[in-house]
Every structure is written in C-alpha cells, then in structure tokens.
Amino acid sequence: MVPVHMRRSLPVLLLCLSSCATTPGNVSLRSDGTPGPEECPQKALEAMRILGLSVGDAAEVELDVNQTDASPITLYDGPVESMLNSPLGPFPSVSRLYGRVWTGGPQAVIRYYEVQPPEREPIPICAVARLGLGQLRKKPESKPGTAILEFSSAALYIVNSFR
C-alpha cells in the first residue's frame, strides 16, 4: 500500500520527470570488460528522494521479462527489460525496469536507469541487480557478448552511484 503523502507526490513527480528520459551515459569499461564507475543522474537522485527510496532499499527482480522463471537464462550485452517480483517503495510488483547488461567480465553486470509502474510514465532511478555467492556468475559455456545464468531472478538494490 502506498502511503497517502506518496500517492499525492507520484503524479506530480511523473509530470515533472516524464520528459526527462534517462539513458546510460558513456561508461568506460575496465580491462575485464565490466563497466566502470558512473554517476547517478541528478533527476534520478531527486526522484528517489521524493519517492522515499534510499540506498540499500531492495526488492526481487525477474532479470528478463522474456525469460521469466526459465533456468538457465541467457542475457545479452545491451538493453534489458526486467520486472519487479516484489514491491519496491511505492512501486508494485510487475512494475517494469529498464537498464543495461554488460557480459564482458566473469559475471553479468546489470544497471537499471528507469522504473515504470503499471499505466504510468517511466521514472528515473539508479539500481543494480545482485545475488550473493557469485550467482550472477556466467556459466562456462557463455559465448562472447552473452551471459548464461543459472537463475532468472535476483535482488535489486537502490544505489546513489554505480561503482
């Protein structure tokens, strides 16, 4: 349930930010192919503050909506559409997440730049997919530009910058 004060803020926030599409910037790659540091855009920091999302807030996410509940899954370098499996602050499960996947290193790196609640405009955020114990680690049979992962879901964490 979304608190009353947030229900009033969400339409105003959506109106203010709907024209501000957030896309990944030019991210330098490390020698192992993983993305380097990236600042969280000011609009995303502002949106997360207004919505009451804090660094470390977490939810469960289905990594690729086209491979829900599959095992294993294959992720490709580039854009990804994911879906919340559990609520995140004011966002209900089934909200869509838009981000980017990098597969160059020993594990997949997934950064999210937008969340889109049902029947609403996308809102800028900064979040990452994580799993403990190396569970985003690529399977040995992964070809260049892909990451074959054992699990289709992971934890999503709000961040204030990408490291």
Rank of each mutant, 00 (worst) to 15 (best):
V80K: 02
L131D: 07
L88K: 10
K43H: 05
A129Y: 08
G104K: 06
E119K: 02
E121Y: 03
S28H: 09
R111A: 03
E141K: 13
S152D: 10
N66T: 04
T34W: 07
G89C: 12
L15C: 10
V65L: 15
V65M: 14
P90Y: 02
L136R: 13
P124M: 04
V109Y: 11
F162I: 00
C16A: 12
P41S: 02
T74R: 15
S9H: 04
V61W: 07
V115N: 00
Y112K: 03
A44E: 01
Q42Y: 04
D69A: 15
L14I: 09
G36M: 08
S142L: 11
R100V: 00
T74P: 02
S95C: 11
L75N: 04
S93A: 14
A70H: 14
P140L: 14
D69N: 14
D77T: 15
L29D: 03
L133Y: 06
V55N: 05
E119L: 05
L45F: 06
A147C: 11
T22D: 01
E81P: 01
R130D: 08
A70D: 13
T74E: 12
I148E: 03
G145N: 09
V61K: 07
G56T: 09
P79H: 13
G134W: 02
C40Q: 04
Q135K: 15
A44W: 05
V128F: 09
T23W: 00
T34A: 14
R137K: 14
E119R: 03
A58Y: 09
P124H: 01
V4D: 13
M1P: 09
M1W: 08
L75E: 06
R163S: 13
S19I: 01
L45Q: 12
P90W: 04
E62L: 01
F151L: 14
E39Q: 13
K139A: 15
C16S: 10
I73R: 01
L10S: 05
I110Q: 09
Y112A: 00
M1L: 11
S93T: 07
S9A: 14
L13F: 06
P24C: 04
S161V: 03
V80I: 15
K139C: 07
K143D: 10
P24G: 09
L51H: 06
P118L: 09
S54L: 10
R120A: 14
N160L: 04
E81Q: 14
S152F: 08
G78V: 11
V12A: 10
R137L: 13
L45T: 01
E119T: 01
L10G: 08
V2H: 05
T22L: 03
M6E: 11
L45C: 09
Q42A: 11
L14C: 12
H5Y: 13
K139F: 11
P79N: 12
C126K: 06
S54Q: 13
E121S: 06
S142C: 10
K139N: 10
C126H: 02
A127F: 02
I73L: 00
V55G: 00
M83E: 12
G33A: 15
D57W: 02
V101A: 06
L14D: 02
G56C: 08
G52W: 06
L15N: 12
L17N: 04
L45K: 15
S19A: 08
N160S: 12
F91H: 04
